[in-house]
Every structure is written in structure tokens, then in C-alpha cells.
Design a protein around this nucleic acid. Structure first.
Length: 427
RNA sequence: GUGAGUGUGGCCAAGGGGUUUAAGGCGCCAGGUUGUGGCCCUGGAGAUCGAGGGUUCGAAUCCCUCCACUCACCCCA
């Protein structure tokens, strides 16, 4: 028999384990997300990790990179085409329609925290499974709602302590005025076709809006004098955009107009925005969003305007670390129970159970380690108190309570331990 | 899909063909007398040097293939 060496499994490419040391960052972000949502009246929604493939191909757009090459798609045992969610908006809209949420007072405000799946080549800040915090306000076209969504995003990042952020804003028009803009754009680029990079050659036919954010020096030059979408807006879109800018100014949000800002999902209309750290670097966008007034109708619902936003949690973590932002540590059990000898062991187990009954978090020693080893463990677990039980204590119905920081310890009756700890731990 | 870089114990790493039975540090475990942590001291466990093949008397060290990771492009969070 050949002894094949057991191969160690690795997490699949582009995925990551979030180890206990990382959790403080994640919980911190989650808490801020939840609290900003409470502040603005958004309610949580959780949707499945996978959906009918068509939900995404219809909404995001067949021609986009996400749909054409990045989706985790498979057929299940029943022959259904299934896709792991590559973004969060379409599932929320599906749920909105499926459960008749249009019958609630509008706009309907929903948020989510969810894993997102895209088959991409991983690199810094980009994963095959990543996590997004996002929210959607569905059912009203008022530019004040765009402003709310943007304001909320901005405040969210600021509440995390992130500094030096930039808020990029643009309007890409609606289905009435965009066609005219695209014609102008194509005409302009066709005039420069000889100097375009191969990628842009493709974009010109497939996805002309994307021409604008090619980073090649040559293409940048061409883009610089390309027609701007904001100059081709119909009167209604123009009005919407200028109202939005007015609201944002009123909220004192330092937005900068970026005529090259276009997003990679087809469903956006009018407002698009992104928030990025000022420090340069690839994959830097922390979050982005925009208005998608046609999406819900596209999915078979009644015409329903909506705006939304999503942020990448992994990228936030990176930036929190980069900016050295202090993260509140996670509180673990603060009491460690050590014992000496078998009788004491039983008593220790009883004690631990009793304290937990009283809501006091306890780590109980296991095995037959020396007291020294047990205290060493209590120390490295950062316990505030150690409770020590030996033969002596068992015989007298007492317990030693040791304060790990001050090294002071005192002998207590078993009965009064819970009360004593309760009093000490709550301050 | 394209291009570049990197792979030595859990982590950080020295070593670039022959005293390497592979340094050192962190971490882990155990001791430093009888039931007491953090500092210090001592000891211990843990690596067939990413995998496979080749060159050579000899390979962690040279060559090839593969794999993984990282970074960049594309695109996005």
C-alpha cells in the first residue's frame, strides 16, 4: 500500500478565512453599518446566496463583465440555472416584487450585509467571495432621496473614522437622453479610432460608456475632450441633477464632479457616485451606487424609481488598517476558573455552570495542568479575574478570587462569588 | 484571460551546491521545589526547505514542469 501523503486543503482561491484576530474589525464595521441604517430608517433584509441566473443577466446586463465572465453559474440537480449572487441590488428588487413590498409606505428603505461572489483573478482588495454592505431606497424619484443615500454613505465612512475620502459624482442620463449621448460619444471616438488601445476598440462597440475610464495615457488624452454625459441630459435629468447638487451642497458634502465616472452595471440611470480614498492605488473604490429607475420594471414590476449604494467590507478593513484607526476590542469572558485536584475539578465545573447561569462569562480550565500553567493561560487569555479552587477551598466552601491586573486576591465564600463578580465586572 | 514577482516549522526569517543531523526571533509546551500568571532563566516539541522530475559523488541551494500565493491590467466593492 502506498502511503499517499495527505494533502492539506486550502481555502479556495480568492476566498479568505476571517480569523478571530480579524473579527474586531468586522464587527466594528457591521455595528457602524447597522447603526447608520437605524439612524436613517433602513430595515435589514437578507436574501439567498443564490438566485435564478436570469435575475442577474437581465438586470446587470448581458454585455457587462460581471455577467459575461464573472458569474458563478451552475445547474442544480433539478436542472435549474443558478448563480451565486454577484451583487446585492437585483436580489433586493426581486424580493421587493415577490413580497409585494410596494404596498408599504414608499420609499421602502432596506439594507443588507452579505457575501458576494465573482469569478475574478484575485488581487489586493479583490476576492472571489467578498462582502458588501449595501442599501436601497425603492419607490421614489425625488433627488432628495439620492442625496439621502449619498449622505448616508459619506456619514458611514466618516463614522468609521476614515479620513481623506473623495466623493465622485456624475449623471449618466436616462433612457430618453442617453442614446443621444452614446451616439455623440461613439462619433467622437470613431474619429480617434487609430489611436485607441485594443480594449477601447472593443468598448467602442460593446460598452461605449466604459471608454471614458480607460487608464492608458493615450486614451486618457482622448477621453479628456470627449463629450460629457452631463451636457447631453434631457431637461428632466438636468433638473434632477441640479437639484441633487443643491441638496448635497446643503448637506455640505464635498462632492467632485467626475465626467468619467461610469459604472459597470447597466441598470444605472441618472445619478452615479463613488467614494474612494484619496491615496492612489488600484482597486481603491470603497463603495459606490446610483439611481436605477428602470430596473424594477425590467424585472417585471411596475415602473418604480430607486437609488442604492454598496460598499466592500474587505476594502474598508484595508483602509482602517492603513489609516491606523483604533478598533474597539471584542470583549471575551473575563473570568478564568482554575482548579487543583480531582475534587476541586468537580467543584470548578459546578461553579462555572452557576456563574454562566448568572450571565457571567467563564472559561473553565480543562485537563490536568499545573496551577502555574492554568494561570499562564488565564493571563494570555487576558482574563480579568482568576478563580482558584483547591482541596482547601473545597473543604471550607470557599474560593480564591484573584485580580489578574493587580495580583490582589481574596478568599470568598462560594455563595458570594457570583455577587462579588457581578459587582466588580459591571464597572 | 494577459503580464510580473514570490514560495524555508503556526508567524517573521538566515542560508544562493559539501561540518545544515537547516541558524535566530515570536508563538506554543514544560520546568526554575511544596497550590499562583505577566519579566527573566533553562529545556522541549514542531520543517523530508511549495510539489514532481532532472543535473551532480553530493542540492534548500543549479535546470525543467506543475501548483499556490502576491501584485498589476481588464472590471469592480
Amino acid at each position: 500500500m502506498k502511503q499517499e501523503k495527505a494533502r492539506l486543503y486550502q481555502a479556495p482561491r480568492g476566498t479568505a478565512d476571517i480569523l478571530p484576530e480579524e473579527q474586531a474589525h468586522w464587527r466594528y464595521i457591521e455595528q457602524e453599518a447597522v447603526s447608520i441604517c437605524r439612524l436613517y430608517g433602513y430595515e435589514r433584509i437578507d436574501t439567498p446566496a443564490f438566485e435564478d441566473t436570469r435575475l442577474f443577466s437581465r438586470s446587470i446586463g448581458e454585455e457587462t463583465d460581471i455577467v459575461s465572465k464573472e458569474m458563478y453559474t451552475f445547474s442544480d440537480r433539478g436542472g435549474n440555472q443558478i448563480t451565486l449572487r454577484p451583487e446585492g441590488t437585483a436580489p433586493v428588487c426581486r424580493a421587493y416584487l415577490e413580497h409585494g413590498l410596494k404596498n408599504r409606505p414608499k420609499p421602502v428603505r432596506l439594507y443588507y450585509l452579505a457575501p458576494i461572489f465573482r469569478y475574478e483573478r484575485p488581487q489586493s482588495g479583490r476576492y472571489r467571495q467578498h462582502h458588501q454592505f449595501g442599501y436601497e431606497a425603492i419607490g421614489d424619484g425625488d433627488p432628495a432621496l439620492d442625496a439621502e443615500v449619498i449622505d448616508m454613505a459619506w456619514r458611514f465612512f466618516r463614522s468609521l473614522g476614515l479620513e481623506r475620502l473623495s466623493l465622485q459624482l456624475n449623471s449618466i442620463g436616462c433612457k430618453k437622453c442617453r442614446p443621444g449621448y452614446l451616439i455623440a460619444l461613439k462619433a467622437y471616438y470613431t474619429g480617434h479610432i487609430k489611436n485607441l488601445c485594443p480594449d477601447c476598440d472593443r468598448r467602442l462597440v460593446r460598452n461605449p460608456l466604459r471608454l471614458l475610464d480607460c487608464k492608458r495615457p493615450n486614451c486618457l488624452k482622448i477621453a479628456a475632450s470627449a463629450p460629457k454625459s452631463s451636457e447631453y441630459l434631457c431637461p428632466a435629468c438636468q433638473e434632477h441633477f441640479s437639484q441633487l447638487k443643491r441638496y448635497l451642497a446643503q448637506l455640505e458634502l464635498p462632492f467632485v464632479l467626475n465626467h468619467f465616472l461610469v459604472r459597470g452595471l447597466d441598470y444605472y440611470t441618472r445619478t452615479v457616485f463613488e467614494i474612494q480614498p484619496e491615496a492612489e492605488g488600484a482597486q481603491s473604490t470603497l463603495g459606490g451606487g446610483g439611481r436605477y429607475d428602470d430596473l424594477i420594471a425590467e424585472l417585471g414590476g411596475p415602473p418604480t424609481p430607486a437609488v442604492g449604494f454598496a460598499a466592500g467590507v474587505e476594502r474598508i478593513v484595508v483602509n482602517l488598517k492603513r489609516q491606523d484607526i483604533a478598533i474597539p476590542p471584542l470583549a471575551g469572558p473575563r473570568v478564568f476558573i482554575a482548579y487543583i485536584g480531582d475534587e476541586a475539578r468537580d467543584e470548578a465545573a459546578r461553579l462555572a455552570a452557576g456563574l454562566r447561569q448568572d450571565g457571567i462569562g467563564v472559561i473553565q480550565a480543562v485537563g490536568s495542568k499545573s496551577l502555574k500553567a492554568q494561570l499562564r493561560q488565564a493571563n494570555s487569555l487576558k482574563s480579568r479575574y482568576a478563580v482558584i479552587i483547591g482541596e482547601q477551598e473545597v473543604n471550607t466552601g470557599t474560593v480564591v478570587l484573584r485580580d489578574m491586573a493587580s495580583s490582589e486576591q481574596k478568599i470568598l465564600a462560594v455563595k458570594s462569588l457570583a455577587e462579588e463578580l457581578q459587582a466588580r465586572l459591571c464597572n
